[in-house]
Design a protein around this nucleic acid. Structure first.
Lengths: 362, 362
DNA sequence: CGTCTTTATGGGACCGATATCATCATCGAT
DNA sequence: ATCGATGATGATATCGGTCCCATAAAGACG
């Protein structure tokens, strides 16, 4: 009685019932005539098995089109290979760049990014966080977005590295890597003051209620503080509409500022999006930039360098930020495996004024 | 001897060894004095248990800060709650919008999007696909990005719904929802021809080798075909640089076209990014748009509506596309549960010329 | 009031991998 | 020739949930 299995129904020795057709590690092991453990080794640490055995297993894997089930693997090894990333939205070039840089940095180590957006909604934030944690990420990256008591508690309970990025919070949960939005505001104000302007305005969104993003408001706080330190009035700091800001936001806001009797000589916009919108609106109104009004932005979006005049702005390298975050995570995760997690790390990536033509001396 | 457990070390009856501190369903069940199954029911189908029991369980869940482990759940229930999305990049407003719309549509049904980018690299595409499938998504959404034989085979083997979006391929793998890039090209050409232009040009990227994205080239194919049908020359169709295109790309390309002796009267750019770059370059060169040259784009990016003159373009609602895809997926997945998957569905969401001021009659 | 449903809950196997330890063969050193 | 060290592979328990079926209690009905 030849024991060679029939080709079609690969029902072998033990569990006869199979609900799905998808091959498991057991199918591979049978086809290759080895134990499941050997198959597992071939796929995770190939040097550990003899070349001959390895080839046999790899052939079986290829023949069956076997793709291991990471859910099962995760459960057993307690390593999911997930990194969670929570951000306000992906519809923002800078956040998309962060996600991009992070993915790149993690790709080699075979980590997969789990992305959740809050859409600037705090209730959503908590739900999303719970969903994320249910996937047992090995670390979580936040975009200055966690405020609720409950959310923080969940994070701590999860007992994984937490990295806050894009903002350096005064009281970081654990690690942080980014820049100070407050400093952005101060730097912008300082820059405009040094150019000799007296009447300096700004464009921002109102920091109303439940918006899970205070980064813009931080910038404004810094901006106003610096103005005050130099005895400038802050009444031209306009909070118009609500976040997230947009080209339209900038257009509407600059219109309002230009209509004032004490029209500002220079305006800082909370985001390049608003700044570009403002410049475009000026073009339409026949208001010359920078001759009639200087405009400065934040974020160094690609479009800012392309418009006429090109936009003076404050640059932060978000993609690099994502990559550095990835690097830090890999370090934390490997280190974590060998010893205690160690000190919280705070990294300031700094910022840089990019001088272009939309601001001239006042 | 009182059997009330000590508060701190909740080590109870059976398995004494616990490597992590994180509570499991077993801890909850013990604290609530019910079976694990009852806890599971409370969390997945609350109406199935008595209100009194339910409250007790929920309290235990809250007290312990219990968050279920979806990996374990997935393994057992064979439902991961993942939908895979593969796209060329997230650093493109339209793709980000798709992801956004899709997330929204799936949010309610508690599906989680697993995003992978290929960065327009075909080798990466295959690796990414394998990684995605290892997470056992219940469906997969592709952005006209799968070409390799192996990749297609893996998809078929995975035995899950496959939806290709943003392009309507001539030979869809299964379902498809989107628009025809070829039609985009034809529509653009038709529009410009109808405006009475004779010398019509275009700006695109060269479709070189291993770029996993032929959508742009499809547009150009349609554009050229339509030109030919109307006896127009196609020698002003310029393929400059390689994908992905950018503002700079458009600027450089329009410069090249404008330098020609037979300078075009109207130019269609493969993307609004290029188109906006072209308009900005014209501003710099003192070439008036549309008086000296008309410019038309594709994609209806937000910035297009803001520049001066605002850009005539072809609109496709990518966010809606994402949402409709989500809707289709939910339908497929629920239907799949009850019966055979049924016919492949092909949905054309169409496109629409948005007439603004960057094109005038020739 | 006994029998038949219906409803709420529990028991145990199982999902598909990996961790851990045992086993067996091979080989150099004594 | 004997023995411990080394390397390759296998057997089994386990990860943390859910499926499936059993069972007990409560209500329906003649």
């Amino acid at each position: 009685m030849p024991r060679s299995a029939q080709i079609n129904p690969p029902a072998e020795t033990k569990p006869a019932r199979r609900t799905s057709q998808r091959p498991t590690i057991r199918d591979v092991s049978r086809l290759a005539g080895v134990s499941r453990m050997t198959v597992s080794r071939v796929l995770s640490d190939p040097d550990m098995v003899l070349p001959a055995t390895r080839e046999r297993v790899l052939k079986a894997v290829a023949d069956l089109g076997y793709v291991p089930d990471r859910a099962a693997g995760s459960l057993s090894s307690r390593r999911t290979g997930f990194i969670a990333l929570m951000l306000p939205t992906l519809t923002n070039a800078n956040f998309a760049a962060v996600a991009h840089g992070l993915t790149e940095a993690l790709r080699e180590a075979e980590y997969h990014l789990l992305i959740a957006y809050t859409d600037y909604d705090m209730a959503e934030e908590e739900r999303q966080l719970r969903n994320l944690l249910a996937r047992r990420p090995e670390a979580i990256v936040l975009t200055g977005a966690v405020h609720r008591r409950t959310a923080t508690r969940m994070l701590l309970a999860a007992d994984i590295p937490v990295v806050e990025i894009a903002d350096l919070p005064s009281q970081p949960i654990e690690h942080a890597i980014g820049f100070s939005n407050y400093q952005v505001g101060r730097t912008a104000a300082r820059y405009l003051i040094d150019r000799g302007f007296e009447r300096i305005g700004a464009i921002a969104a109102s920091p109303d209620g439940d918006v899970a993003d205070h980064r813009g408001e931080e910038r404004m706080r810094g901006f106003e503080d610096e103005l005050r330190l130099s005895r400038r009035a802050t009444d031209l700091v306009l909070r118009h509409g609500s976040a997230p800001v947009s080209f339209h936001h900038g257009a509407a806001a600059i219109r309002e500022l230009l209509a004032r009797d004490d029209r500002p000589q220079a305006v800082f916009a909370v985001s390049d999006l608003s700044a570009v919108g403002a410049v475009m609106e000026c073009q339409r109104l026949g208001v010359r930039v920078p001759e009639d009004v200087s405009i400065m932005g934040f974020g160094d979006f690609e479009i800012g360098g392309e418009i006429n005049p090109p936009l003076t702005t404050i640059h932060v390298d978000f993609r690099a930020l994502g990559q550095r975050t990835g690097g830090m995570l890999l370090d934390l995760l490997s280190r974590n495996a060998e010893a205690g997690s160690g000190e919280p790390r705070i990294v300031d990536v700094g910022l840089r004024v990019v001088e272009r033509a939309s601001v001239k001396d006042g």
